[in-house]
């Protein structure tokens, strides 16, 4: 077998990596002041590092009071959705080189949820909307099989996209409808309803559709595609919402 070409990384590894970047961070701490302010930090970063690495550098070397949530650091736990240069992203999945480090990089909390301190927002309303769509498999269970329920690969594929959701809220907090009216379920809740409505094993599709048929349900969506752009898992959020809308009209899913 041919030896794979291995020079790509090696070339990168020898260049001197560090550059100076400015992080312009939205600060808010009600223990100190009722006003939110912008604060600039200068730091040395390798452009291949993450925005999260930059935030850690600030916290660990310059200002320990800077507050944000994070855990996994590679885009699977959903802790660190924030507005970076005006767009919702995960700080741990955004590399410095991908966001023009020549200008100050702005970092703010996601919009539409109450800011509690710096980049930390109140996630409770978001999780409440999620819980409201009954995000769990419901079956009549008159004949619970002893082995697994069967599901064809095609039926499994039908809802694959929406199983990827990590509940980061990037979509919901990028939605202009949600900004104006926090009662709207928001895209993430609809994505999670979709995950069950289109699961061949689930038997509560009608109930879930009724919930989403509500005044604050899917019909509020104005198809701005912000959510699809924001989703760090690459879920086609707007398409999922459209499929739910269609199911509401045709009652077929």
């Amino acid at each position: 077998m041919a030896t794979p070409v291995m020079d790509k990384v090696q070339a990168d590894a020898t260049a001197s990596p560090y550059i100076t970047v400015t992080f312009r961070v939205r600060r808010f701490n009600p223990e100190v002041s009722a006003e939110a302010t912008w604060e600039d930090f200068q730091l040395e970063l390798d452009p291949k590092e993450r925005v999260l690495d930059g935030l850690h550098k600030i916290k660990w070397e310059q200002d320990g009071t800077l507050t944000f949530r994070r855990s996994c650091a590679h885009g699977i736990c959903g802790s660190d959705a924030m507005r970076i240069n005006g767009k919702n992203r995960l700080a741990c999945k955004t590399l410095i080189k991908d966001i023009n480090p020549e200008k100050p990089i702005t970092v703010e909390p996601i919009k539409g949820l109450t800011v509690l301190k710096d980049l930390v927002v109140d996630m409770e309303p978001f999780f409440q909307a999620y819980r409201d769509v009954m995000p769990f498999l419901i079956t009549k269970d008159t004949n619970e099989p002893t082995r697994e329920r069967l599901q064809s690969a095609e039926d499994r594929e039908r809802f694959d996209d929406t199983t990827k959701c990590i509940l980061c809220a990037a979509c919901t907090s990028s939605c202009p409808v949600f900004w104006n009216d926090g009662q709207y379920f928001g895209p993430a809740a609809i994505v999670n309803a979709h995950r069950f409505i289109f699961d061949s094993r689930d038997e509560a599709g009608e109930q879930r559709l009724e919930i989403l048929n509500d005044r604050d349900g899917v019909w509020r969506c104005r198809t701005t595609f912000n959510c699809t752009d924001a989703c760090p898992r690459g879920i086609e959020v707007t398409k999922a919402i459209a499929e739910v809308k269609r199911a509401l009209i045709t009652r077929r899913f």
Partner: peptide, 20 residues
């Protein structure tokens, strides 16, 4: 414990005959 998870709704990958 795998079958429990399937019944709770876990979307396992499937074989051509629909099993896990």
């Amino acid at each position: 414990s795998v079958l429990d998870l399937e019944k709770m709704g876990l979307p396992f990958n499937r074989t051509p005959n629909g099993t896990i």
